[in-house]
Design a protein around this nucleic acid. Structure first.
Lengths: 215, 215, 215, 215
DNA sequence: ACCTAACCGAGACGGTACGTCACGTCTTTCG
DNA sequence: CGAAAGACGTGACGTACCGTCTCGGTTAGGT
C-alpha cells in the first residue's frame, strides 16, 4: 500500500509569490521577454520550484491568467437595458484605457496565440466576461427590451469584438463616446431583432466557393 | 560630388527569398518559434544577410506582413448596401476560416503585440482592410441607405472587431450565418443612424471615475 | 553567518574532460585552429561549461599546459657531469623528435606568444625543466667538475636554447650527435669557468649605443 | 598625397602599402589579431586587392617577414674572433631588447608555428642571420682561432638558441653581460674544438630507446 | 522528541539560438 | 581593365535561457 504522505508539504507562499511575479512579469515584458529564470529571481524562488509545479512557462502564465479571471465585476442594474449597457461599457472601457491593464490584456492575448496551453485559461477568462454582458442582455429580453429569439451571443461578440479590436490595435480610443455608441447599437440591434433573422438577402450574391486574394 | 555608390549591389533574390521564407515560417511556427537561424536556412541565405538588412526578427516579420498587406480585395458592387456587405463578409469570413490564413493572421497579431516595430506594418495592413469596408459604407451613405452623420469608423471597427474576436478566440465560427447577421446589424445601425448621435442616454448611470476590479 | 555554498558542485569529470580534450586539440590543430566550440564537442560538454570556468581559450590552454608541466623527469646520476648531461640530453632530444611531442611544444610556445594569459603556465613549465638541468650542473659544482662561480643559469639557457631553436625551426635535427656535442660544450664551458668571468674582452669594440638595421 | 591609379598594370604602390601595413599590424596585434579586413583598411586598399596577390593571410605575412629578411647587418671585423663575436652579440642583443623589435620577432615566430606557409620566409630570414654569424666563425677558423673541423653550425645554433630562448620567454635579459659570456663560451668551445668530436663519453648511459615522461 | 522524506534556494550541467565578426568569394562602378 | 567598395554564404565568437540535475539546509508529518 502507498504511504499517505511524508515530508514537507508544498509551500503555499512560494506558489503565490510565483503567480504574483508571473502576473507582474507578463505585464512588464510581455510573453516573449518572459523567462523562467527571471520569474524565479523575481519571485525569490529556485528555478526548480517553478518546474516542480508547472511543466512550462505557458502553464505558469495560464495559471496566472486564470487567477486574474476569477475576479468578477459587479453588474449594473439601473432598470433599463440602455443604461445598464452604457454604464457597463463606460466602466469597462475606462479600465481598458489604463495602460497597465491594457498591456496585461494584450500580453495575455499574445500568450494565448503563441501557446495553446495558455489559451485554455484565457478562454475561460473571456467566457466569464461574456457571461456578464449576456446577463445584462438576458435581463433586457425579460423586460421585452430585446426581441425574443435575438442571438445574444452574436451581440456579445460584437461588443467585446469592438473592445478588443480597438484595444489591440489602438488606432482609435475606447472613450465614453465609443461606449455610448456601442450601447446604442446593441439596443437598436436588439429592438429590431434582426440578428435573430436567419437569412440575409435571398440572393447573397451567390458567394464564390473560394477567392484568391487572402485576408 | 560624392560617389553615388560602390560595391556589390543588394541581391534582390535574397531579399525575396527571405521575405517569402519569413511569411511561410511565421505561418508554420508562430512568432515564438520563429528563429533567424531557421529563417536563414529556409531562405538559403547567410544569417548575416538577414541582419545586414533587418535589425531584428520583428523587422523582418514586419516587412513580410507589409508585403502581404499590399494585396487588395475586389469590392462587391451589387447596388444595395445589404447585398454588398453580405457578400463582403461572407467572402472575408470564408477566407478567415482557412486554418492557414487564420494562423497567419493570429501570428501577425501576436507579433504586433510582442514588438512595436512589427506593429507599424500590421496596422497599415489593418487600415487597408478597414478602408475597403468603409468604401462600401460610404456608397451606402451616397445612396441614402445610411443616415448622414453616421460614424462609419465605429461601424467598421464593430465589423472587424467581430471578425478578429472570433478568429483569435475561436469560441464560435465565422460562418455564413454570422456574416448575414453582421451585415444586417450594420444596415440596421446605419438606418437608425443612432451611432451618429453624440450623447448616450440622458442618464448614463453616472459612471464612477474609476472602479477597482480590473477589466 | 554566511551560508557556505549552495547549488550543485562543480563537476570534476567535466573539468578533466575539458583539459584532456584541450591538450589533445592543441596538439592536433595548433593554437589558431583551436576553437572553444570544437573543444566543447570533443569533451562532450556544453560550451557554457567551458566559459563558466575559463574566461578565454587562452586560459583553458594555460591550464592544460600547466597540467602537463607537473610531470617530472627522473634525473640521471652516473657519477660524472659528462655522462649525466649526455644521458639527459640524449633522452630529452629523443623525446623532442617525436612529432606529437614537438608539435605540442611548438603550439604551447605559439600560444604563449599570442596570449600573455597562457604565458604564465608555460613559463612555469619551462622553469621546471631548467631546474632539472640546473640540478645536474649543481652536482657538477659540488664534485668540482664545474668551476666555482660559473653562471649556471647561462649554461642552462644555452642548452635549452639549442633545443628550442632547433625544435622550433627544424633546420637541423636534435639527434644523439647534437646531444653529445651539447654535453661536451657545457662541460668545457664549466671547466674553463669563462662564463663566470664578468668582463668580456677589454676592448668589446665599443659597441655603438644603437644601430639602425634591426636584429 | 593620394596614391596614383595606373589602370591595368598592377599598382606597385598598393603592394607596398599592404606589406608596410602588414609589418606594422603584425607588430601591433600579433598573428592572432591580424585580420585581412583590418590590413586592407590600414593599407587603404580593397580586400580583394589583397586576395588578388596573396592567397592567404599567411602569405602576406610571409612576404612581409621576407621583406624584413633582406636587410643585412654590417659584420664587425676587429681582427680577433673574441672582439668580433662580442661586438656582434652586444649589437644583436641590444636590438632585441627593443620591445618593438622583440615583439615583431616573437610574432613572426608564432606565425611560423601556426602556419607552414609563413614558415618558409621566416626560415630564410633566420638562415640569413645564421650565415652572418657563421662568417665570423669562418674567419676565426682561417685565423686558427677556432680548431679545424669544429661544427660551426652547432656553435651558431647555440648562439641563436640563447638569443631566441631568452627573447621568447623573457625570464632573463639579453644584456651586455650575456653577450660577453656568449662570446666567451663560443671562443672556448672553438678553441677546445670539442664540438667537432663525434663521440660523447664511451658509455653515454645507454640511453633507453624511449622514456615515458614526455618532453 | 526524534526520524526522515519531500520541499526549498542555489546553481552547474548539456544544449540551442542569439547577434557580431572575419573569412574568402563575388559583383558593381569609377577612373 | 585594375582597384575601391561592399554584399554574399559560412562558421566561430561569447551570452542568455532552456529544462534537468545535484547540492546542503529546512520543516512537517509519523512513530
Amino acid at each position: 500500500m502507498e504511504r499517505a504522505h511524508t515530508g514537507r508539504r508544498r509551500n503555499e507562499a512560494a506558489r503565490e509569490a510565483i503567480i504574483d511575479a508571473a502576473i507582474a512579469l507578463l505585464q512588464d515584458v510581455g510573453y516573449e521577454g518572459f523567462t523562467i529564470e527571471r520569474l524565479a529571481k523575481d519571485a525569490g524562488v529556485g528555478k526548480q520550484t517553478v518546474y516542480r509545479w508547472w511543466p512550462s512557462k505557458a502553464a505558469v502564465i495560464a495559471e496566472a491568467v486564470g487567477t486574474r479571471a476569477r475576479h468578477t465585476i459587479p453588474l449594473p442594474d439601473t432598470g433599463t437595458l440602455g443604461s445598464d449597457l452604457t454604464e457597463f461599457f463606460v466602466n469597462t472601457f475606462r479600465q481598458s484605457e489604463d495602460p497597465a491593464v491594457l498591456n496585461q490584456l494584450k500580453n495575455m492575448m499574445a500568450a494565448s496565440i503563441e501557446n495553446p496551453e495558455t489559451a485554455g485559461s484565457f478562454k475561460e477568462f473571456l467566457a466569464n466576461r461574456r457571461a456578464s454582458l449576456r446577463t445584462l442582455l438576458e435581463r433586457g429580453v425579460e423586460r421585452h427590451e430585446v426581441a425574443e429569439g435575438t442571438d445574444l451571443d452574436f451581440l456579445t461578440d460584437l461588443a467585446y469584438g469592438l473592445l478588443w479590436y480597438r484595444g489591440l490595435i489602438g488606432h482609435r480610443p475606447l472613450d465614453d463616446d465609443a461606449a455610448y455608441k456601442l450601447a446604442a447599437a446593441l439596443v437598436a440591434a436588439g429592438e429590431c431583432g434582426e440578428s435573430g433573422a436567419v437569412g440575409g438577402p435571398g440572393e447573397p450574391g451567390a458567394p464564390q466557393p473560394r477567392a484568391t486574394s487572402k485576408d
